[in-house]
Design a protein around this nucleic acid. Sequence first.
RNA 1: GCCCCCAUCGUCUAGUGGCCUAGGACGCCACCCUUUCAAGGUGGUAGCACGGGUUCGAAUCCCGUUGGGGGUACCA
Length: 515
Amino acid sequence: MGQKARVVSEALYSDVSRAQSDPIGAPRVRFAPSPTGYLHVGSARTALFNWLFARRHRGVFILRIEDTDAERNREEWVDGIFSALSWLGLEPDEGPYRQSERGELYAAAIEKLVSAGKVYACDCTRDEVLRRTKQATTPGYDRYCRDRGLAPGPGRLLRFRVPDEGNVVVRDLIRGDVEFACSSIEDFALTKSTGAPLFVLANVVDDIEMRITHVIRGEDLLPSAPKNVLVWNALGGPELPVFAHLPILVNERRQKLSKRRDPVSVDLYRDQGYLSSAFCNYLALLGWSPPGGEEIMQIEQLVSSFDLEDVSHSPAFFDVRKLTHFNGEHLRAMAGEEFVSTCLPWLAGLVTQSRSLEVDAFRQLAPLVQERVSTLAEVPEMVGFLFVDLPEVKEVAWEKVMRSPVSKAILDAAASAYRCCDWAKEPIREATLQIAENAGMKLAKAQAPIRVAVTGATVGLPLFESLEVLGRAKTLERISAAFERMGAENIVLENAEPENTANTGPEPASGVAPV
RNA sequence: GCCCCCAUCGUCUAGUGGCCUAGGACGCCACCCUUUCAAGGUGGUAGCACGGGUUCGAAUCCCGUUGGGGGUACCA
């Protein structure tokens, strides 16, 4: 942050601290999305920063739907935004306001600007403007209608009369003062030719009316900030708001996240099993870093340490791998019961018999699941073996460990040992260890065929705990099913004696892969 | 084209002139732990875009270059 920015922010922060003891001066911020059907991750980050700032300084977080464009205004388009915000826990203190319901305000503002001569009517068609722009000296619109004295009316849009000289200074908490020469700003349109208000107008009218103190938004809006300032002053608004233009979020090609090729909908992450707390945590660290350095934080910690002056300047890449790591951390930080109830909806598709029985089985293994998953979506696969009659054995798993006489011998031994041992984790482990020793193998290697027979996979939850919860009957049933399949595949049983691999040729021992 | 913003490991970042031999986190690699897989622990990998200044001293301040990005609608 440059020297200028620091000076500016110090001045503003003294304002803020004054505001804390004076509710009338408390910061008022707004998140102002347009209806898009879903919440974009970049928008979510903007909403989060606004919300955090408001919470941190005991201010007010306002939600305003910028739906002045009638063609893009459908009710379901806003519902998606509401539900995503609510999932994230970013509930507004005021609103939602809808610009489509605030037409009188804009009409009054237009009236005011017209009578003050701040705007003028223009009846140029887009083609005409485009054609003339090419040889014009001014940027954009060539001011053709500026002095024609056209009366406002149907078919004529209203343009802002940008001063010929001077600069517009945008005070930005993150970037310092940004100056724009008036000569580089075109006479922009404030209304459509139908008279309908455009974004630049409605946005400023509402910010004034809602007494917004801090405009926190994406950097892509920085070029429109000088226009906002111009209109604000023309409207005779009170003290200008302070801007804070957040660095944008980019993809791996360093371009603004696009809905066409990047996964940008917040819903997508919710549906993939990410926790809103982890999502907010990760989003907060995109462009901001906590003074302490500790990255894994709950929402309350975010609120207590957040500040706009710690926001960085450069675009940030949305890295789903780091998000996933954060999610795992948040999952593991949950209380056991909370983790169980959070998982339940993800298990709904697996329920076969008695729900309470299955929930109970899941609850027993949940602590082991909890430290192994990084998204909720991984849960069903991990415990699926509990809820079926016979597991679906993955072919690669079968190929890898079951095509061996040694494996068949282990299953054979396990079948008899498991028939009589006490059915609990420890005795099962003891019995299995005995089998391994008899076969001259490590426990790690010997448990593999049992795991495949019982769960269908080479990796999974700790085996003996899994067997205990599964129950003796199902365990034996699965082992014998695997045993029979091996018979059908002409895998012969051999002695469970310790073998001398040097003499038995290349086949047997190497047939069991360590898993 | 014009206007504006930005520039530290692959990524997110700490760094506000000496504490920097540049710190942390994700990822990756190795080892430890271990009933598989994770988790956890330990260690490692890798960076100040370039060129000029200012200064006793620059990742840090200034200028320029280069590179990247955003904006440029009767969308928001």
